[in-house]
Design a protein around this nucleic acid. Structure first.
Length: 816
DNA sequence: CGGACGAGGATTTTT
DNA sequence: TCCTCGTCCG
């Protein structure tokens, strides 16, 4: 009998042998995977197979018999968590992987908070406020306290409160702290402590937490309830943290608390990629891990599998200038590859054109698709010009960030109804929807309701339901009708499917009807977005799993919170389009070709960072992150002038360009041309001030006038998110033609030039002509364009590569 | 109470 | 230049 079993197991092993997880790893990776029984610091350079190591380590632990629910794995995005879960599932089976406690800090601790909410005085159905919600509440409070929102800018107040929370300073602690009081007095904001206090009170009263509250409250829970803490400590034998360099103090303390007794902590990260200090992230957390956990072993993953030698070399030459680093030698296992290209332009407009041209010629030459290309910038505002240039050429693109789908007014309105239904205590949600769509309950009435509510210590919604406000009979009825509407929804919530319920809310609230009657492109777009939102209810499946691995049916609460906790990176990034995003958003992603644009002083590094050594180091790390996204080629672009705040500002090349070791840069000796360019710009500026508008100025003015002609629907189409935008981005060029079909100049306002002025010396060159250049050899002119003081000539050189040259410097000889 | 129109501010990065 | 907020008037 025994023997039979052995044979049976052997047979099973033979038929489906357990995957050898240590195979196909390099030595450093293998060590990091197999030594799981000790605290570990895995320093993972860019492209070093970090995710692979993390997933293999977890899978290996499972294979060695560790129970999946004893493992807590924390990531920064849902996407990263989902991806890892999937990969682990492929290694050891889904049965195991789905039972792991794996997710973002916020989603995991939210789960715990919901279970323990009563212990810290919250309903388990508490609402989550996103940044906009919490800012609105702050605005309210500042106004109510009769403070000027000029001295108390809501965004700044919010940032300060956020910073306090990230450092586990509660409102009471803040008020009691002399140093803060002094600082606030110096900043002429003595009421900050009072605002913080009122904000915290209102959040609690509303049964709501903001993002920072989740981390703060879990710490309060663990601090005040040692039995609860102990239960969760025992729960997790192993804790793994991804992107450890980006954890803040609150997160750090949570990990330390949970690990206090017996858990083995494994953190993975790269100090060179710490780019979130503005949000409270502490690079020190990773730098001092070894002193926090003296028994820790360090594993260094230094082999870069992603990028070419030139890219890794260039990135290293930059990051080496930072003082505050863990020692590490990144090296590439790839080919030498292309050198880094620097693209110089006169204006932001031209920068976008040159980049788009370069993208097009790269893709046309074969071997890669649009999806292999990313345009990365420092600020979201830079996306506009590229949007234009890509659209004009019919290149499919997609923009990430900026106004996200879930921040749209119409979407937030529908969500506010849901929030109020789930949590009737949420006064902010109440205020948002009580008179939207308009139902004759105005500010005056809400003020009366508010009085009644605070007098009786109840929520606005309860006050509405009880008819507590002193108003005339007609208004009273309207209030009652609204309360009945919401109560009706609460009943339906338990009877209908998620999707049917959503449709019911969107319809019976009157939101859909009001957009229907509007009958404008904007309204149609809003309807599309609402439909999209409802569709996401249909396809939503809860990832809530109990310890037996049984998936729980999705609830409205699950769906709402999954939406609030979505991050930019969680969006589907597949598809054959050029990707436009901020460098921050690009962390963790990779592309064959990366264009880092706007490489200028006053932009990148950000002007706010240049006065502090630490901040400048962070900007440098940001640049490092940008370069290391590329697998095969990097191009940097900058321009001599940029449209900012409605006027043209001169720009000089970023110091970061000069920080790259010149041996990694394509024609590094071309620097002269760049300074020529700047000199030229200075001349231009003088002309501008002395002789009024010159052509260059007028051109850029007119082009902006042209771009403003885009209607809302079109902009939505281009900026929209979630699937439908992919479609729009693809067709935007053909579909909404006023910009793409006619030659650009034709669309501009009549007051400006419709053709470019011709200057005498342009006669020497023409498209199609063959020319010779001292350095690049022979090529064919593809375009000739007049710019102030010179002629710009685009040439396709036979040796490969298109180039834009200035007649003055290039000294082209006409061939034949 | 709600829509229209005018003034002024905006650009770091985001879980 | 664009968007948001506040005010004024119907």
């Amino acid at each position: 009998m025994q023997g039979d079993l052995v044979i049976l197991f052997a047979l099973i092993d033979y038929l489906c042998p357990p995957m050898d997880l240590l195979e196909n790893l390099n030595d450093a990776q293998r060590a990091a995977v197999s030594n799981y029984k000790c605290p570990s610091l895995i320093v993972a350079g860019a492209g070093s197979g970090k995710t692979r190591v993390l997933t293999s380590r977890i899978a290996y632990m499972l294979q060695q018999g560790v129970e999946p629910w004893k493992i807590l794995a924390l990531t920064f995005t849902n996407k990263a968590a989902a991806e890892m879960r999937e990969r682990i599932g492929r290694m050891v089976g889904e049965e195991q992987s789905r039972r792991l406690w794996m997710g973002t800090f916020h989603s995991i601790f939210l789960r715990i908070l919901r279970l323990e909410a009563d212990k810290i005085g919250y309903p388990s159905s508490f609402t989550i406020y996103d940044t906009a919600d919490s800012r609105n509440l702050l605005k309210h409070i500042i106004k109510e306290m009769n403070l000027s929102d000029d001295t108390y800018k809501p965004a700044a107040v919010q940032a300060r409160i956020s910073l306090a929370k990230n450092n586990l300073i509660t409102a009471n602690a803040y008020a009691a702290d002399e140093a803060f009081a002094l600082e606030d007095r110096d900043r002429k904001q003595p009421a900050l402590a009072a605002i913080y206090n009122e904000y915290a009170r209102r959040c609690k009263h509303n049964g709501a937490m903001d993002f920072d509250d989740m981390l703060l409250n879990i710490n309060i829970l663990f601090k005040d309830h040692s039995d609860v803490l102990e239960r969760w400590q025992k729960r997790f034998d192993y804790i793994l943290v991804d992107e450890y360099q980006d954890t803040n103090y609150a997160q750090y303390i949570i990990i330390r608390r949970l690990a206090q007794h017996h858990s083995q902590v494994c953190v993975v990260g790269d100090d060179s990629q710490s780019i979130y200090s503005f949000r409270g992230a502490k690079i020190e957390n990773i730098l001092r891990f070894k002193s926090d956990f003296p028994a820790a072993q360090t594993f260094k993953l230094e082999q870069n599998y992603r990028s070419t030698q030139n890219i890794v070399g260039a990135a290293n030459s930059v990051i080496e200038r930072n003082a505050n680093r863990l020692p590490k030698e990144s090296f590439s296992s790839g080919t030498e590859g292309e050198k880094i290209k620097v693209i110089k332009a006169y204006t932001d407009k031209e920068e976008a054109s040159l980049v788009a041209d370069e993208i097009r010629s790269r893709i046309r030459s074969g071997g890669a698709g649009w999806g292999d290309v990313a345009i990365l910038y420092r600020t979201n505002a830079q996306s506009r010009a590229f949007e234009e240039s890509l659209r004009r050429r019919g290149i499919p693109y997609r923009i990430y960030g900026g106004m996200s789908f879930y921040q749209r007014k119409e979407v937030k309105d529908v969500l506010a109804y849901m929030h109020l239904i789930v949590n009737p205590r949420d006064d902010e949600a109440f205020r948002r929807v009580v008179n939207y769509p308009t139902r004759g309950i105005g500010d005056v009435t809400v003020a009366r309701l508010s009085e009644a509510a605070s007098a009786r210590g109840i929520s606005l919604f309860e006050a509405a339901r009880e008819g507590a406000a002193e108003v005339n009979a007609g208004t009273q009825k309207r209030i009652k009708d609204f309360a009945d509407l919401i109560d009706g929804f609460s009943v339906q919530r338990d009877q209908l499917s998620l999707y049917d319920f959503g449709l019911e809310v969107a319809t019976r609230s009157g939101i859909i009807g009001s957009y229907r009657t509007e009958n404008t492109p904007e309204a149609q777009s809003a309807l599309d977005n609402i439909e999209e939102l409802l569709n996401s209810m249909r396809t939503f499946t809860s990832d809530s799993v109990d310890d037996d691995g049984v998936t729980l049916p999705p609830t409205l609460t699950d769906w709402l919170q999954s939406i609030t906790l979505l991050t930019d990176q969680d969006e589907d990034n597949s598809g054959d389009h050029v990707t436009l995003m901020t460098i921050h958003a690009a962390k963790g992603l990779e592309y064959k070709y990366v264009f880092i644009v706007g490489m200028e002083e006053q932009l990148f590094p950000s002007p706010r960072s240049v006065n502090s050594g630490e901040d400048l180091e962070e900007e440098r790390r940001l640049f490092y992150v940008a370069i290391t996204r590329a697998k095969e080629a990097v191009a940097l672009s900058h321009c001599a002038s940029r449209f900012k705040w409605g006027s043209v500002e001169p720009c000089s090349p970023s110091r970061f360009i000069k920080e790259i070791d010149p041996k990694y840069i394509d024609n590094a000796d071309d620097e002269e041309a760049s300074s020529e360019l700047n000199r030229l710009w200075d001349v231009k500026k003088i002309q501008q001030t002395s002789a009024g508008r010159n052509f260059g100025h007028q051109n850029s003015f007119s082009e902006h006038a042209g771009s403003s002609n885009r209607n809302h629907a079109e902009r939505f189409a281009a900026r929209g998110q979630h699937g439908q935008n992919e479609r729009h981005a693809g067709i935007s060029d053909a579909g909404h033609g006023q910009i793409s079909s006619a030659p650009p100049a034709g669309n501009f306002k009549p007051v400006t030039h419709t053709t470019r002025p011709t200057v005498a010396d342009s006669g020497n060159y023409a498209a199609g002509q063959r020319v010779a250049h001292a350095k690049f050899g022979i090529g064919t002119i593809t375009a000739v364009e007049q710019v102030t003081g010179d002629t710009k000539i685009s040439v396709n050189f036979d040796t490969g590569g298109a180039r834009t040259l200035l007649a003055k410097f290039a000294k082209l000889a006409i061939v034949g």
